[in-house]
Design a binder for these strands. Structure first.
Lengths: 222, 222
DNA sequence: AATTTTCATATTGTATACAAAAAAAGATTT
DNA sequence: AAATCTTTTTTTGTATACAATATGAAAATT
């Protein structure tokens, strides 16, 4: 049933990094991880290598692995990329959405809206993710879908830290409303534009966001 | 000077896969590779794992590694993605190009044009790649640049097979001319559009391209 | 006292060893 | 002779062993 022990390590570590249990810059000691998962160092090293390839871990030759830290410039680049990828997803979604997908999308949007009024951040986080994933899938390009999800995953340790401004969920949800509408009526241009603006960390709020980052989350120099 | 043996294996195998010395679907025997590079199986496995993460290699649990094969649908998705990524690069390039980069771009375009008249495919391939890489770099988003290069790398085993139609280089080069012009005058919209069309395997010729693929290059079913 | 140097310890990278599973070959049956 | 079952051989996945490098602590020097 279980093809290999190593394959379990990747998602487990991924989870820890993404949720912030393991923080950017933190050392990933091979022996320690081996003990924790009851395996030898060999599968641990394999897992770390894979996480390094996906960008979540940084391997410094002869100096061990750490949870990847991102420079300010890189972080900006990645958010810019994210806005574009999501924009492309939305554009194709508007063109290619099926009748069944329309129903799913409407439901997902309603679920977000229902939570937005009462600032329930954690629940909203999940419903919001579901809505976005749905749009990626609706692009009907699985490669694009995966790349977009991967980048979202990679950004999530940083995204989680976003400021919790009262009423912020409401405006986010309103933006969703417009976006979903654009997709439903097949307006690809509009869907792409709305998404880009929506994802760009709500535009000018990016500097606010940066200011909230713990200093050890980002590298010293670019 | 040389941090590890394993780190040499990755680019070496990458090269073989990208140039087609190792063909899609071909088995990658660990013991054989270990012998070839004069190392033990351990670093070989590490290298294969990394190549798998980048998508060039496919690891089937307990059944060994093969050079990645791509289904027809995946290939189409990847080319579609490529067109979009290059389009984004061109858009940002038009907005952010520096005076020095303008000179480089003009030079690169001229180098392509010089070769295009005489159908020198291999030389053109290299000059063409240089021009495209230059545009990626000019986007001034290193993350986008790397992702675009990675995808190009991954597609190159397939790209190499493109049909060699007489005069094809000339029209390709003319498209470059328009594109470079758009970037130089800062017309982001135009630069993006021209690139998307240019990259979409010259639009409707995609089916021609597919027809030329050896059957073992693509998976049986989608 | 601060800085450099030397030595001890810990950790990484690679090789080898071994167990489990898959592939191949041979034997047996229909 | 074809097909199935059994046995042998390969090959993969993991553990352990060892060498090379980096880290940290103690001693020596300025």
């Amino acid at each position: 049933m279980n093809p290999s022990r190593a394959s379990e390590l990747v998602p487990a570590l991924e989870q820890d990094i993404v949720t912030g249990t393991l923080k950017p810059g933190q050392k990933l000691d091979e022996a320690m991880l081996a003990k924790r998962f009851n395996v030898s160092r060999t599968p641990v090293r394999e897992a770390l290598g894979k996480l390094a390839a996906s960008g979540l871990v940084e391997i410094r030759p002869r100096r061990g692995a750490i949870v990847a830290t991102i420079s300010l410039r890189e972080l900006m680049n990645m958010f810019e990329m994210m806005a574009n990828l999501e924009g492309i997803c939305a554009r194709y979604a508007a063109r290619r959405i099926t009748p069944e997908e329309k129903l799913e999308l409407i439901a997902a949007q309603k679920a977000c809206a229902a939570l937005s009024a009462s600032d329930q951040y954690d629940d909203y986080y999940n419903k919001n993710m579901h809505l976005h994933n749905l749009i990626y899938k609706t692009s009907h390009n699985e490669f694009l879908e995966k790349q977009t999800q991967d980048l979202r995953l990679r950004l999530s340790p940083y995204r989680r830290l976003q400021i919790r401004i009262p009423g912020r969920l409401k405006s986010s949800s309103e933006e969703h409303g417009e976006l979903v509408e654009a997709i439903l009526k097949g307006d690809a241009e509009q869907a792409e534009m709305l998404t880009r603006n929506h994802v760009t960390i709500q535009g000018e709020r990016f500097t606010d966001f940066l200011a909230t980052l713990p200093s050890n989350y980002v590298q010293a120099s670019a």
